[in-house]
Design a protein around this nucleic acid. Structure first.
Lengths: 255, 255
DNA sequence: GATCAATTGATCATATTTGTTCGATAGTGA
DNA sequence: TCACTATCGAACAAATATGATCAATTGATC
């Protein structure tokens, strides 16, 4: 086996495994460990991999789950812009459901200024803002999901059934041009679905970074939403698809 | 496991949990504590986390209860003492209702460490602590009362009807030797009553300053409570009355 | 077949990583 | 305030991984 072949093979293996030990590779190629180390050094010098003591890691090795707050901080500006645009779409009186998540929290933060409004939410951070609110704020009950500080679960759903909203604003963890909006957890998806099912106006608010992010549970296909508020004009194909499905796109800062 | 992997994993965990102790991490990775500390130091030097004595915090973690803390500064010491005493009266597993209010919040703050417990509460500040909780936390639904950040109202009551608690801890705004415990709002009183009605063990926790404070709505006469936890031994007459009604008195710091 | 360059493997001194011990320090409750 | 406990980090020790060096092997070329 030629060196180049081995180098290429190691790269390929790393695509599949994200981490490889020197021992594994030595066995795999039936070569000595020192040979593997030499290969790894070459690959590292070429910037193809990251070496670790005992093996190697994929270069863009990213941690298991992207995480919640991490993204939240660097997109504050964008999310504020989305929020400013989103509230223009929302009624000044009546009942509005506001979802959990950082984008929706920004929207909620602005909506609580409207004194004729009743805001129903599953977001604990939003409930915590009630002290400064002019609007009436109602929390749906349920079990707390610690990662997102959202109220979820069966009882929350039962309770939402009894409600009728003038509008529902929901967020998403992933967007897919072909399918629709996704989230990572079934229990959260159910709450979002139920809220939308009982709302006259359904608004999806999501930061552009959510496009093509993998998230396992479908909240709803595009057609179920009336408006999609985001911060960057979607790719041509995605935009066309949305319009075909009857979703009005609002791009923050541009209208 | 490579160092880089552990560092990445710690970052990911921190995004989900806000805070991690060295011990937790050591167990999680099956590594020694000193190894974890070394990792934490690396992450701190890289500006990825904030270290604390005993563990680490997420870099931009902000306290989730804004606008409420200022109230809580009154009698912190005494309330902490009451809380320490109260939790000794409470089971380590099962379902416990924890009321809104600063005293009960102190109790809840300690109870969330018990990992076999389900805590049901109408206190939004307590719900906001779920991110750091070992216990399962359930919020009852309802309208938010901004002054107290408590969930109240008809829906809250309906929720409570569905529950059965091993214990209920409630607070009060006023205490009267002759009558019992009072609060300022009918809606809050109803929640407290309903919680007690569905609990095996009923604990009233209140700071001594609440004696003879005027508060309009009777929560319940003394006889409805099993224990009264406070920070100062009650006046002779009051103490006698309580005992006659079958309420066990626990004075914080003295037992 | 002899020679050379390239690659690989073996050996061993050195690096790195991890865990243990123990004195120092910070937090906690009285 | 003090004493008590938990946590911390320095220093050492053990285990493991690493790379420099040198020898062996292979294949190409003369």
């Amino acid at each position: 086996m030629f060196v180049q072949e081995r180098l290429g093979a190691i790269e390929t293996l790393l695509q599949q495994k994200h981490r490889l030990t020197v021992g594994e590779l030595a066995r795999h190629f039936d070569a000595s460990e020192i040979t593997i180390r030499r290969d790894l050094r070459l690959l590292e010098e070429a910037g193809k991999i990251v070496r670790a003591h005992g093996g190697a890691l994929r270069i863009n090795y990213q941690r298991p789950e992207p995480g919640f707050e991490h993204k939240a901080v660097d997109a504050v500006e964008a999310k504020a812009a989305i929020a400013r645009t989103a509230i223009e779409e929302l009624p000044v009186r009546g009942h509005i459901f506001v979802d959990s998540g950082t984008t929706c929290l920004e929207i909620g933060r602005r909506l609580i200024e409207r004194n004729e409004l009743t805001i129903v939410t599953n977001s604990i951070p939003l409930l915590a803002l009630a002290g400064e609110a002019k609007a009436r704020i109602v929390g749906i009950g349920g079990e707390v999901r610690p990662v997102s500080l959202a109220l979820v679960g069966g009882v929350a759903l039962d309770w939402l059934k009894a409600f009728h909203f003038d509008a529902a604003v929901v967020g998403a963890s992933g967007l897919d041009g072909a399918d629709g909006a996704f989230t990572t957890e079934l229990s959260e998806a159910s709450v979002k679905q139920m809220a939308c099912a009982h709302a006259k106006l359904r608004i999806l608010a999501a930061h552009a970074s959510k496009w093509n992010q993998p998230a396992s549970v479908l909240i709803a296909p595009w057609g179920r939403f009336d408006r999609f508020v985001t911060d960057v004009r979607p790719a041509k194909a995605d935009g066309a698809r949305l319009r075909r499905e009857g979703v009005a796109i609002r791009v923050a800062g541009l209208r």
